[in-house]
Measured scan of single mutants.
Amino acid sequence: MATGGRRGAAAAPLLVAVAALLLGAAGHLYPGEVCPGMDIRNNLTRLHELENCSVIEGHLQILLMFKTRPEDFRDLSFPKLIMITDYLLLFRVYGLESLKDLFPNLTVIRGSRLFFNYALVIFEMVHLKELGLYNLMNITRGSVRIEKNNELCYLATIDWSRILDSVEDNYIVLNKDDNEECGDICPGTAKGKTNCPATVINGQFVERCWTHSHCQKVCPTICKSHGCTAEGLCCHSECLGNCSQPDDPTKCVACRNFYLDGRCVETCPPPYYHFQDWRCVNFSFCQDLHHKCKNSRRQGCHQYVIHNNKCIPECPSGYTMNSSNLLCTPCLGPCPKVCHLLEGEKTIDSVTSAQELRGCTVINGSLIINIRGGNNLAAELEANLGLIEEISGYLKIRRSYALVSLSFFRKLRLIRGETLEIGNYSFYALDNQNLRQLWDWSKHNLTITQGKLFFHYNPKLCLSEIHKMEEVSGTKGRQERNDIALKTNGDQASCENELLKFSYIRTSFDKI
């Protein structure tokens, strides 16, 4: 039985969820670079991206490699990797027998973001014989899940209580170790020597080791999670996991709180800001991140802002960003909400898709409305799209047979046209069989910064309504002859009103 693990408890099935942008060198404390989270699957090609990484700022997932063999891993080693800020997950990587050479110096898994409450997941690794993470000293947050690894031993010899604050939620089941077939031998045991430290858990006094050649490092209890030197002297209180010299914040392997210019500090002093819960960055760093993602459509890219001495992905609820200094300031009234469309555009074809934009005031991208039916549609669209004030790209209304009016965009005031449909149009209306009105132009103002209007096959939309939009939106004169079809717009509506004058002759039985 794995020490510190839980057996036999019912657990939810383990679901495996399925960018080499360097964020800056980590400095003297770390020998390499800070790398983003990685999802490495199918083959070993991307694994080489770990070569210079000291910190993975995010998670590391290595999974679904069915053609790899043990010899493929023999020359692979990433000794610079010290810390993973989120979680480490391995799933069905064939041929991998140990992690001792792959990650010989991995010391800390912070667990800032977890995989279903777990910071370390080893699942269905069919050839893994031992973990071998002999320098792993601290899992700051989260638990361990090690399950269905039929060859995995050296679990009962690990004292997880020396690595985690609590072992109650560890789930370590259905491994070879369960069948008591392992016969784990710690260093020196074969020669009758006791080389590794022994600890007591559940009444068992057991030597602690990761492999037959690597003991588990056990520091004096007084050192807590700070770690200790090879001689057993406690590291500085700002260290986490390990250090090369005692009581020196510049000799830590990793930091308990924050890293700044080669030393570990309790908090980031001005003019620095907390970033990702582990390091200090200056304003320029946060500003660069903001600008890199301002026009990016890459998933996970955030326009970072500053709030409460932190550089964070977005302002919290009730705050909006001051564009001059990136500071989050309290909103006066309802907060603006910028919604970034991942692929640059979004099609609204149902109430469900409209709900995804609920509360958005600025759309960074283009909207395509293609709704053919739905219950209580006008009210639903207004509830979900009615706060949109600005669209950076274009607005396209296409084959939306259920629409009679666009009044559900009740606050839309600006279409920038930074991206144009077919390279020309910022407003595009095609084949809307029941569209009769755009907006009530006596109450609604709309500016279209650039781009043209396109109207074709809107049989109940009168040309007068379209011409009014040209005047109000500032697009009059931009359109070419064929942009607004004269014969297919309003051709099934009563669009022309003329005053009919009647004269009559009164007659009676005795007068003409």
Rank of each mutant, 00 (worst) to 15 (best):
P36L: 08
C243Y: 00
I312M: 12
L327K: 15
T189D: 05
D247H: 08
M137P: 01
L136Q: 02
T68R: 12
S112K: 13
T329S: 09
P334L: 10
T157V: 05
Q287P: 08
E238M: 09
H212D: 12
N295W: 12
T68I: 07
C186N: 02
N42E: 08
P330R: 15
T320I: 05
L106H: 01
P187I: 07
P246S: 04
V218A: 11
M83D: 04
F66A: 04
Y87I: 00
T157E: 09
R263C: 03
G32L: 07
V305Q: 06
I172S: 06
V305Y: 04
P270C: 08
H28A: 09
G333I: 05
F78S: 02
Y118P: 00
F103K: 00
L99N: 00
K100Y: 08
Y319C: 08
C331S: 03
Y171H: 15
G37S: 07
C153Q: 03
V206Q: 15
I222M: 07
L88G: 00
G58C: 01
I185W: 15
T211H: 05
R113A: 01
E130I: 05
T320P: 04
Y259I: 15
M125T: 07
S237E: 13
L50S: 01
S213E: 06
C182T: 03
D165F: 10
A230E: 14
Q276R: 10
S77M: 04
Y134R: 10
I122N: 01
D184M: 15
G300S: 09
D159W: 02
L136Y: 00
H59Q: 07
D277Q: 12
H302L: 03
Y134H: 01
F205P: 06
L155G: 06
E151Q: 15
Q204H: 02
Y259L: 06
T157S: 07
I62M: 09
E151Y: 13
C264F: 01
E314K: 07
I306D: 12
F285S: 11
C315Q: 03
L63V: 13
L131F: 05
G58R: 00
E180L: 12
E49Q: 12
V206S: 15
P31A: 04
T189Y: 09
G32V: 09
K193A: 03
D75F: 15
I62R: 02
G142T: 00
T320L: 06
E181A: 10
N175R: 04
M125Q: 04
G203T: 11
L44H: 06
V121H: 10
L260P: 00
W278R: 03
W210S: 04
T229R: 08
K310H: 07
I158Y: 04
P270W: 12
Q303S: 05
C234E: 01
P270H: 11
A190C: 04
I62V: 06
I109Y: 00
Y118A: 12
E71F: 14
K100M: 10
W160E: 00
P271V: 03
H307D: 15
P334T: 14
N282T: 14
P269M: 03
D288E: 05
F103Q: 00
R113C: 07
I312P: 12
F91Y: 14
M65L: 07
S244Y: 11
I306A: 02
C255H: 00
A119F: 00
D39V: 15
C234N: 01
R279L: 04
C335A: 05
L88T: 00
N242F: 08
N322K: 10
V218R: 07
S225D: 08
N322W: 10
T157Q: 09
W210R: 03
P36S: 06
I56L: 12
F115H: 00
N117M: 08
F91I: 10
M125R: 00
F205I: 05
E97M: 15
D184H: 05
V93F: 11
V200S: 14
A254T: 11
K217N: 15
L155F: 07
Y134T: 03
R279E: 03
Q245H: 09
G227D: 02
R256N: 08
T189C: 11
Q204W: 06
K310Q: 07
L120G: 00
T45C: 15
D75P: 03
L136W: 00
F66S: 05
N135F: 01
V218T: 08
P249G: 08
S324N: 06
P330V: 12
N117H: 06
H291V: 05
R145K: 15
L260M: 03
Q303L: 07
N257Y: 09
L81V: 02
L47V: 01
F66W: 03
A190R: 08
L76M: 13
R162M: 13
D247F: 08
T68D: 15
D75Y: 10
R41I: 15
P316R: 04
R256L: 08
D159I: 13
L174W: 04
S296F: 13
C286H: 03
D86S: 02
K148Q: 11
T107G: 08
V253H: 15
V265F: 05
Q61N: 02
L233H: 10
G188V: 07
L289I: 14
K129E: 09
Y154H: 09
M38G: 11
C255A: 00
F205S: 08
L114M: 09
A190I: 06
K67I: 11
K67G: 12
V108I: 09
Q61M: 03
M137C: 06
D159N: 13
G95M: 02
H236V: 01
I109N: 00
Y304V: 11
I146L: 14
F258R: 04
C252P: 00
S213A: 05
G183D: 13
C223Y: 02
S54D: 03
S225P: 14
K310V: 03
H302W: 14
V253A: 14
N242A: 09
P70V: 14
S244L: 13
C35L: 00
E231G: 15
N195Y: 07
F73R: 02
H59S: 08
T140Y: 09
R162S: 05
L99A: 10
S54V: 03
W210P: 02
E180I: 04
H212L: 12
C293P: 02
R145F: 04
Y30A: 15
Q276S: 11
N308H: 08
H28G: 01
I40F: 15
Y94R: 09
L164P: 01
K80C: 10
T85K: 12
L63S: 08
L44N: 11
V218C: 09
M38W: 02
Y118N: 01
Q303R: 09
D247K: 12
H214I: 11
C35Y: 00
C215M: 15
P79I: 04
L88E: 00
R69F: 12
I84G: 01
W160F: 12
S54E: 09
E51V: 05
F91N: 06
P249V: 03
E207A: 08
A198N: 13
L120Q: 00
G227L: 03
T329F: 13
G318E: 08
Y94G: 02
L155S: 05
D72F: 04
P249Q: 11
S237K: 05
H28I: 02
L164A: 12
K251I: 00
Q299W: 02
R113W: 11
I40M: 10
C286D: 03
V34L: 10
D288L: 09
C186P: 15
D169T: 06
E130Q: 13
N195S: 07
S54R: 07
S112M: 12
T157R: 12
R162W: 15
P197T: 08
E238I: 02
S98R: 04
R92V: 04
C268T: 00
I84K: 00
I84Y: 00
Y273I: 05
R298S: 11
N42Q: 12
N117I: 02
C280E: 00
C219T: 01
C182W: 03
L102V: 14
L326Y: 14
I312S: 05
L233F: 06
Y273G: 04
Q299L: 11
E180Y: 07
R110T: 09
C239S: 00
I122Q: 00
D72L: 06
L102K: 00
K224T: 06
P31T: 07
Y118H: 13
P197A: 14
C209Y: 01
C228A: 02
L88H: 00
K251R: 13
F205A: 04
C264M: 00
L90K: 00
L240E: 09
T320F: 11
E51K: 01
I56D: 00
N52A: 12
N149S: 08
N195L: 09
F275D: 01
R256W: 05
N43H: 05
D86V: 01
K191H: 03
Y87R: 00
S143W: 13
N322E: 00
C311K: 02
P70N: 04
C209M: 02
L332T: 03
C264G: 00
F258G: 03
E207Q: 08
I122Y: 00
C235W: 00
P316G: 01
Q204S: 13
Q299N: 12
K191L: 06
E147H: 05
K148V: 13
D75V: 11
C235M: 00
H48T: 08
S77V: 08
H302G: 14
V34F: 03
